[in-house]
Design a binder for these strands. Structure first.
Lengths: 127, 127
DNA sequence: GTACGTAGATTACTTTTGGTTACTTTTGAA
DNA sequence: TTCAAAAGTAACCAAAAGTAATCTACGTAC
């Protein structure tokens, strides 16, 4: 049974469509390696279930890597695969467009805030 | 009540998130002006309701223009606003990434097809 | 005066997505 | 002996997204 796309972007959306995937990918693009709990701090709104399911799907699509360290307590690290790195230009533009858009909304008088606290949170435990 | 984004891409997704919006925008980026029924041919899978609701939301966000010609039968033409044109680099990359991805899947032996019949359909009625 | 074409609204219905809560696993520390 | 930490899973439920079918409006062509 054949899958048919009418335009390239439809195939792209099949991979990164969904509420959280672009967010996850942008953080990975930004930080390199990220552990599960770091994701939860970087993306406060996401539930445990969504986080793992989205990570699994991105892994299946070949965009991200899941590296399990055999230790207790467990440690799992996610990162972009080389194939996923092919998305970097897109991820960067999605982020910067959003930043500009927030400024645009603020200029219009809307009450919007961009936290971008990445730097603060980033690498706290280098375990 | 303030809206808070943790990273730029979240703001971007608020505007172009959803199954159809990037597809609509890509077609507009590609063709310039598109009428309602042209959209239905370009995006066979979309329902009437989704098409108009997504177009309305994109219009509200200031990305697209809705031009009504006062004639019978009705004619409505959609196009990117200057603000929406700021998305063009992103839209182009989303399309070309998808095209490459389809090739990648085909090389892996998956049964995937990219129609990209845009040229065929495009401007049939110049009314 | 009947049917056509275009754009869209409405309603009722189904499917998909996402959230909540509770439970699991393993080992070292209190 | 019981707990804590990290990364999950599983079962259930609510909400959102999406679909199909029908209805409106109107001027033109037949």
């Amino acid at each position: 049974m054949q899958k048919i796309y009418n335009i390239g972007v439809e195939a792209t959306l099949e991979v990164i469509g969904g509420k959280w995937k672009p967010v996850i990918l942008c953080h990975l693009n930004h930080h390199g390696k990220i552990r599960t709990n770091e994701f939860r701090r970087l993306i406060p709104g996401i539930s445990q279930k969504m986080l793992t399911s989205q990570l699994r799907e991105l892994e299946q699509a070949g965009l991200i890597n899941r590296k399990v360290f055999n230790q207790v307590p467990p440690k799992v690290e996610y990162s972009l695969t080389p194939y996923g790195q092919g998305m970097e230009p897109i991820l960067n533009m999605l982020c910067t467009w959003g930043e500009k858009h927030v400024e645009f909304l603020q200029d219009k008088g809307e009450e919007v805030l961009l936290k971008q606290r990445d730097e603060d949170i980033a690498i706290q435990q280098t375990s």
